[in-house]
Amino acid sequence: MSLLETVQLEHLPPGYDISLALFRNVKNSAFLHEQLLAGNTEFEYALIDASVLVSRVHALAAVYRAVSDLLGGRLRSRNVHSEIVFSLSPNNNIAESFRRFGITPATTSLLVIKVSLPPSSTTDTSTASPLSSPDIQAHLAANIEGDSLPFTDASIASLTDVARIKKIYKLNSGGGAKKTKGAVNGAGIHGGNEDGNNQDEVHELEVAVLGAMALRGSNN
């Protein structure tokens, strides 16, 4: 049984339920990848390589961006699910974003995201009948060969390839900046916070990634 979590995001209209499920040791990525390429409507998911995710917020930020662009009639890719993958990108190259963030035959860690649209908005899309959470859960359980994990920061962190993320988002230049940061505000202001260093690092990585996503394609 997969651990499916459903959330609603701030500022989106009611009815846009986001379902997320995290897997590791996925063995049938090639099959799942094929379903996407074939446009199999039973696999209307965003299938994301979880090794390039930093945190929950990272994934949810991409969902928020994609659904906002859907509502604003500004989708750049085929549908809201492919748009989620594209929303993770720091640039405007859609094909490249699928290669980097989407599932590939070699993917072993997988985040599956399904956006359920409210019933009223499905007039134009015949296939988008809202699925209930148990339906999605059953479908994932039947079609994904892998171990289900809870969609938590801790599980995501256990799958994260930090070096790869830094490379994709071009975050290596500021490597030395972190050390000097403490000096700006003097020592000991927040008391002993040495244990939090690793958490701080992940948080700063998340912040840098969110900034790159927000500025997608408009950097110079």
Partner: peptide, 21 residues
């Protein structure tokens, strides 16, 4: 947004950028 992202990336204490339109 660009200035904030650059500052934050380089360790200047500024608010993080979450999203924009």
């Amino acid at each position: 947004a660009r200035v904030l992202v650059k500052c934050r990336k380089e360790g200047v204490p500024v608010p993080a950028v979450f999203a924009l339109d």
